[in-house]
């Protein structure tokens, strides 16, 4: 085990802890499926911005893989969508699922555009 081989997971872990706490904070303020949509869109925007910026591998691990990866969540989205389908029907759940994808995709591309545009 070298210092370098431990540094990468440590950066990802610290970013992950901060991302999880931030997501928790959004959840306490917004609540429910809307908070999942909010973190997924915001986090995808941020990851798009990081991916398009010429930051080093340490910043990518800490902020991209760690923070953005943990701030956004697939499992809460999936469980929330299945529960929505069971409670209010498949159509409403399909709309939530499609909205998450569209919002996160547009946010990611916007993030890359903004970051790329600012730097060029």
């Amino acid at each position: 085990m070298t210092v370098e081989s431990l540094l990468a997971p440590a950066l990802v872990g610290v970013g992950g802890a901060l991302g999880a706490v931030s997501r928790h904070a959004v959840g306490l303020r917004v609540g429910g499926d809307r908070s999942v949509l909010a973190v997924n869109a915001l986090g995808s925007f941020a990851l798009g911005a990081v991916a398009a910026a010429p930051v080093g591998s340490a910043a990518t691990l800490l902020f991209g893989v760690g923070f953005c990866g943990a701030f956004t969540t697939f499992s809460s989205f999936a469980v929330g969508t299945v529960r929505a389908a069971n409670e209010t029907g498949g159509r409403a759940a399909a709309a939530v699922a499609a909205l998450n994808l569209a919002a996160a995709l547009v946010a990611f591309l916007l993030g890359s555009l903004v970051s790329g545009g600012l730097l060029n």
């Binding site: 992950g16 991302g19 999880a20 997501r23 997924n40 986090g43 995808s44 941020a46 990851l47 893989v65 953005c68 990866g69 943990a70 701030f71 956004t72 969540t73 697939f74 499992s75 809460s76 989205f77 999936a78 998450n100 996160a104 990611f108």
Partner: peptide, 8 residues
């Protein structure tokens, strides 16, 4: 929730 990710 951190193990899974939507942004990546």
């Amino acid at each position: 929730s951190s193990f899974t990710t939507y942004s990546t």
